[in-house]
Nucleic acid binder design. Sequence first.
DNA 1: GAGTGGTCTAGACCACTGT
DNA 2: CAGTGGTCTAGACCACTCC
Lengths: 262, 262
Amino acid sequence: MAKKYERIAGALRQALRAGRLEPGERLPAETALARQYGTSVPTMRDALAELLAEGLIDKRHGVGNFVREPRRRVECSNARHQREKDCARPVETERQRAGSRERDTGLTVSDVAFSAEYREAEAEGDLAAVFSVPVGTKVLRRSYRTFARDGEAPFSLITSYLVHGVAAPNPDLLDETKEPWPGGTQNQLFTVGIELDRVVERVTARPPTSEEAEELGLRKGVSVMQLRKISIGTTGRTVEVADVVLPGDRAELVFTTPLDRW
Amino acid sequence: MAKKYERIAGALRQALRAGRLEPGERLPAETALARQYGTSVPTMRDALAELLAEGLIDKRHGVGNFVREPRRRVECSNARHQREKDCARPVETERQRAGSRERDTGLTVSDVAFSAEYREAEAEGDLAAVFSVPVGTKVLRRSYRTFARDGEAPFSLITSYLVHGVAAPNPDLLDETKEPWPGGTQNQLFTVGIELDRVVERVTARPPTSEEAEELGLRKGVSVMQLRKISIGTTGRTVEVADVVLPGDRAELVFTTPLDRW
DNA sequence: GAGTGGTCTAGACCACTGT
DNA sequence: CAGTGGTCTAGACCACTCC
């Protein structure tokens, strides 16, 4: 036996897909909907919460519930790592031309407005293990927010870590006013003599913290994708670790794996 | 001002991390907790729902709420595609040796119990577009469930599509009793003369349908990762499409991107 | 000020588990 | 049978938006 709020959610979903309600249109008030479906307001709200998590409606406090137009997702492909590498080592003028302005999200710089914050910190257990350095090693911690071109809310929250001693030879890397850096992280690493061999990305999904939900403008019930990107240099050393939090309902990660020929 | 149930959730989280409650231990009854935290039962339940979504507690109907031991995640790496390819073309005896028994989840066959179901269907708009075939083209639709070695609930739900005309030359590919197929999908494709050039995987997160939640044994508030795997042959043609649904709290996808040297 | 959704309360009744 | 969590109800009160 299905739960009552699920049955109501199903009926509403049906009504939305059948197009009896147009995108942008306001739904009846929750009290009216509850009466209409023969239930109480809290149960009706449970049903609406389900549609909210699925992205079918938007809730606006003090205004009403609205049919949402289907959200298009922003793609974020691993091909950007090679592209960024290709552009990380050229002459200055070359670097700033089209296609060379990729960043961790796979968007071009024109798509993102930056807010960067640099801070020194000490590697804790987890991070120290990934970098293979002793706990307490000084690291540079850089926080970014990126915004998609049309979006209001940030599209991703990024925390990037470099071992301080590795970045220090180039003082510009320690200076947050130099952001956004045109050639991306790989160019930054190039300036201290580091070439990347490969990038390893680990992806999971989890519910957002309340801060993340607020910053990313997530509706209730929407999860985030958490991506840990580990960049490994040609010497086999882990040179950068970046934790990226992406809205589960707006982001799509694309990974292409080329295969050797027989 | 934080919401009351969030403050209570925070306090409980604190208590759990501080280890004042051991994994496996039962929490006080919800009525008792509500009294203890000076709130009503529904609000206390909201707080507990948050911890549930985070995987910190387990709820057992009619029994109680329990501190959960930290769940380890099952990794699922894109390196398996190359490994599977390496083993897809050898002599028969070779194929069945260790390491050659990978499947779409990155687990070995010994880790999974199969339930496969084959069915013919017609490509709808979405699928037809990916395969670049006319809508209505006959496809073979194969559904799998995989189980991790220790798990009770399925670890992944897989729906794989092949264009019927492509698989037909080998009648065994149309026969679900031949599953599990030792060499994996790439060996199946090899038997009809297809070599893969690359695999493209698109990852998103979304709330589960109620059926998925039931089948995967998901707690409330846990999202799934949805992965669409597109296998492209050496002729540039899309030869297989697989939709994989993974529990967001138990799965970790790992993608390694090798980079060309300067 | 009227109307809307957001949070919280109090409690009924049901379903499940273990004794 | 006693005790637990699961669902649903009814309604108070607050915060927000718009007229």
